[in-house]
């Protein structure tokens, strides 16, 4: 465990908590893509099946359980408790265009052709693109609430910190996982445009709105 990995995990946790609190406090999930949140719940479910087969550390197990629980809670708030505030009309990204190719790819390119390994690979690939429905929704409405941009910032920061973590581990532990690294690079790139807007607008106190 190095400092980049730890702050990456904490940044990921911060993103998840920010989103939950935003929905809970405002009693509204306006501007949030339920489809992205469903995809993240699917990502955590398929990745953390090893909770049943192997124990790594108390930290590892508790963080996995927290991520899974929070992602299901978020989906519950969006599709059940605050369903009336869910902006389904703007959440129109076709998720089958992500899930089907990612499913196919995880069968073709994986470390080992076994059920758990294929599901783990599926979750890695799916996570890299799961934010697309949310970004699509923002591009469609042309704006995002500031709290939503904080959520996206911490979510992108998490993956960027993981990239530094992998460089660190490559040099100091000889550790390298091509699947995770390529997916992580793709995922981080998807946030670059958003990072630019976040720094140039949101951090200067302006609302994130896109030119018409």
């Amino acid at each position: 465990m190095n400092i980049f990995r730890l702050t990456g995990d904490l940044s990921h946790l911060a993103a998840i908590i920010i989103l939950l609190l935003k929905i809970w406090k405002t009693r509204s999930c306006a501007g949030i893509s339920g489809k992205s949140q469903l995809l993240f719940a699917l990502v955590f479910t398929t990745r953390y099946l090893d909770l049943f087969t192997s124990f790594i550390s108390l930290y590892n197990t508790s963080m996995k359980l927290i991520y899974v629980a929070c992602s299901y809670a978020t989906v519950y708030l969006i599709y059940m408790k605050f369903k009336a505030t869910y902006d389904g009309n703007h959440d129109t990204f076709r998720v089958e265009f992500l899930v089907v190719p990612v499913g196919g790819l995880s069968f073709l390119v994986n470390h080992d052709f076994s059920p758990l390994e294929i599901l783990w690979t599926f979750s890695i690939y799916l996570e890299s693109v799961a934010i697309l429905p949310q970004l699509f929704m923002i591009s469609k409405t042309g704006e995002a609430e500031t709290i939503t941009t904080h959520y996206l910032f911490f979510l992108g920061l998490y993956r960027a910190l993981y990239l530094i973590n992998w460089i660190w581990r490559y040099y100091f532990e000889g550790f390298f996982d091509l699947i995770a690294v390529v997916a992580g690079v793709v995922q981080t790139i998807l946030y670059c445009d958003f990072f630019y807007l976040y720094v140039t607008k949101v951090l200067k106190g302006k609302k994130l709105s896109l030119p018409a």
Partner: peptide
Amino acid sequence: HHLVNTKDEL
């Protein structure tokens, strides 16, 4: 081989 799975990561 040098490929190691990142199973200890989240």
